[in-house]
């Protein structure tokens, strides 16, 4: 009956009152400011601290930058775990993503200053360029995350993936029965269109959205638009083929946007693993030859 005031009301109410903003704007760009401060501080240190004989990863300031960089890289790579480990507690993946983006960008400054602008053919430089590769792929990721969702949503038009495929199946069923009265040549065109795998085209087709071998488009070529629609069956099949081509186009656009949203992860993640390995080698070798 009477209960202790220990429920989640305040917390829930804060959530319901919270601003509704993207990961980039999170908490009025809190992590952007932190990242900018970090860059300014490290840059200022680099300029003002007299490093003998010259700026180098092996000076005390170089070690400091290296430690910050290593810490950041290891922490940034933990996002993959945070995302998948749904533990209790007051964390938000949006805040993590926000910090990941801005601190990741700050690494360009921290990492570059750590090198002291000394580039060579060795494992140290390898680690540096792997880091840049990870960051560049990440920048692509931020750009597509910020721009593509609207396109994805427009294209989806309230249909789920399953519904898009179902709609295609329904058109195919109609096509099959509508094509029965057709002659051999036109029938073959329809059959070929129906037999073609919806997902044909491979990774290239998916990313570029070009499907030169699309049997549906080819079939459409075999059904010229006749003014007045002389032949009933042929006209009906033609309109169904147009519908099929439109439905296919929606599915393909969906695949393309999803692919563009995900492709960078195929570089970002493996490069991160390689970076961690290279960093390990870099750190071990530095201390080995100390």
């Amino acid at each position: 009956m009477a209960s202790v005031p220990g429920n989640r009301f305040k917390q829930d109410e804060r959530r319901r009152n919270a601003d509704h903003v993207s990961f980039l704007k999170h908490r009025r760009y809190r992590w952007l400011w932190i990242a900018v401060l970090l860059c300014l501080a490290t840059g200022l240190g680099y300029a003002l601290i007299d490093q003998e004989p010259r700026p180098n990863g092996g000076s005390w300031y170089g070690y400091t930058l290296g430690t910050i960089g290593l810490g950041l890289i290891v922490w940034l790579s933990l996002l993959g775990i945070r995302k998948r480990k749904i533990t209790a507690g007051n964390w938000s993946l949006k805040a993590w993503t926000s910090a990941h983006v801005y601190l990741g960008l700050a690494l360009i400054v921290v990492g570059t200053l750590h090198t002291g602008f000394q580039i060579g053919w060795n494992v140290h430089t390898l680690a540096y360029f792997l880091m840049l590769l990870v960051i560049i792929s990440g920048i692509y990721g931020v750009i597509v995350y910020a721009t593509l969702p609207t396109t994805l949503s427009n294209n989806r038009n309230e249909m789920t993936r399953g519904e898009m495929l179902e709609a295609l199946t329904a058109i195919d069923r109609q096509l099959e029965s509508a094509a029965q009265p057709l002659g051999r040549q036109q029938s073959d065109l329809v059959i070929r269109a129906l037999e073609q795998d919806v997902f044909y085209g491979g990774a290239w087709g998916r990313l570029t959205g070009t499907y030169p071998g699309c049997a549906t488009n080819r079939a459409l070529g075999g059904f010229p638009e006749v003014a007045g629609g002389v032949d009933g069956a042929s006209e009906r099949v033609r309109s169904l083929l147009v519908k099929r081509a439109e439905q296919l186009a929606q599915i393909r656009r969906q695949l393309r946007i999803r692919a563009l949203l995900e492709i960078w992860l195929f570089i970002h993640i493996p490069a991160t693993i390689a970076l961690l390995a290279a960093l390990f080698a870099h750190v071990v070798s530095v201390f080995y030859y100390w």
């Binding site: 509704h20 007051n90 993946l93 949006k94 993503t97 995350y145």
Partner: peptide, 25 residues
């Protein structure tokens, strides 16, 4: 009973998922 509140909102990486009440939203 889960500290931190709804997992769907906490686990959204971009801030797309929000939970609202009509009088506030």
């Amino acid at each position: 009973g889960i500290d931190g509140g709804p997992a769907c909102v906490r686990a959204c990486p971009t801030g797309a998922a929000i939970r609202v009440s009509p009088d506030k939203f």
